[in-house]
Amino acid sequence: MSSMNAAGDHLHRRMGIEILEASAERVVGRMPVEGNTQPFGLLHGGASCVLAETLGSTGAALHAGAGRIAVGIEISATHHRSATSGHVTAVATRVHGGRTLATYEIEITDDLGRRVCTARLTCMLRDAE
């Protein structure tokens, strides 16, 4: 399992993001809707982007390997429907894994399996300093 679930005051912990499965090819995680909403009680679009970037960056870091880091350089998201309760689950799937860039498509669904958001993240891979 990823060190993402380790203790520490990081954004993913504040938002309740849990990594359930992690490999360079595929990362699965979930996040509660409660506490991550906008004023109308709907899942905040920015929260979906944080979930997507957390999972995609985790996969990219695993792809990059030891002594290298992954830094998100571009994210796009289409919000298909709202979520108002329960959890959303995201699956990040690698679509490109090179030496300097890795790109993931992230599908976020609600508790009924309905697609809430589709995101795409590209990370730059570089040597750790």
Rank of each mutant, 00 (worst) to 15 (best):
E74C: 04
R114I: 12
G56P: 01
H44T: 09
R114L: 12
A102I: 11
G16P: 05
V27N: 08
R115G: 07
C123A: 10
H44W: 11
S76R: 06
G8L: 09
A119D: 09
M4N: 09
E105L: 11
L125V: 02
I69T: 15
L125R: 04
I19K: 04
L51G: 02
L43Y: 04
G16S: 07
I69R: 13
Y104P: 09
C117P: 01
E34T: 04
V95S: 12
V50K: 01
I106E: 00
G45T: 05
E129K: 13
T103V: 15
R81C: 02
A92F: 00
I19F: 03
L121D: 06
M31A: 06
F40V: 11
H87M: 12
V88F: 03
A77K: 02
G97R: 10
D111E: 11
V28N: 03
G97E: 13
H96D: 13
L11W: 10
A77T: 14
Q38G: 05
I19A: 02
S85P: 11
A83E: 02
E21P: 02
A70D: 05
R26N: 06
G72Q: 03
E25F: 11
V28L: 15
L112T: 15
G45P: 11
E74R: 04
Y104Q: 08
T109R: 00
A7G: 09
D111H: 06
L125Q: 04
A6R: 11
H87R: 10
M31N: 00
L11R: 06
T122M: 03
E25I: 12
I75S: 07
A70M: 07
S48L: 14
S82T: 08
L42G: 07
R126M: 15
A102Y: 06
V33W: 08
R30Q: 07
E21N: 05
A66M: 10
V50S: 10
S85L: 12
G35V: 00
E53W: 06
M1R: 09
F40P: 04
P32I: 11
H96R: 14
T89N: 04
T54H: 05
G46N: 04
A60L: 08
H80R: 15
M31V: 03
A22G: 03
E74M: 02
H87G: 08
T58V: 15
G8I: 03
E74N: 09
L55Y: 00
A90Q: 00
R99M: 11
L42M: 14
S3I: 13
R14V: 13
T103H: 08
T93N: 10
Q38D: 09
G97C: 15
A60M: 08
G56E: 02
A83T: 06
V28Y: 09
M15H: 03
C117E: 04
V116P: 00
P32W: 01
L42N: 14
M15G: 00
E129N: 10
T100C: 08
A92K: 05
V116N: 02
R13Q: 14
G41C: 05
T93W: 06
R114S: 13
L125W: 07
R30L: 04
I106Q: 01
G46W: 12
P32N: 09
T103P: 14
S57A: 02
V28I: 15
S85K: 14
V116Q: 06
V27H: 03
C49E: 01
T37S: 01
R126G: 14
L101C: 13
S85W: 07
T58P: 13
E107P: 13
N36P: 03
G46E: 09
L55A: 00
L112H: 14
E34V: 05
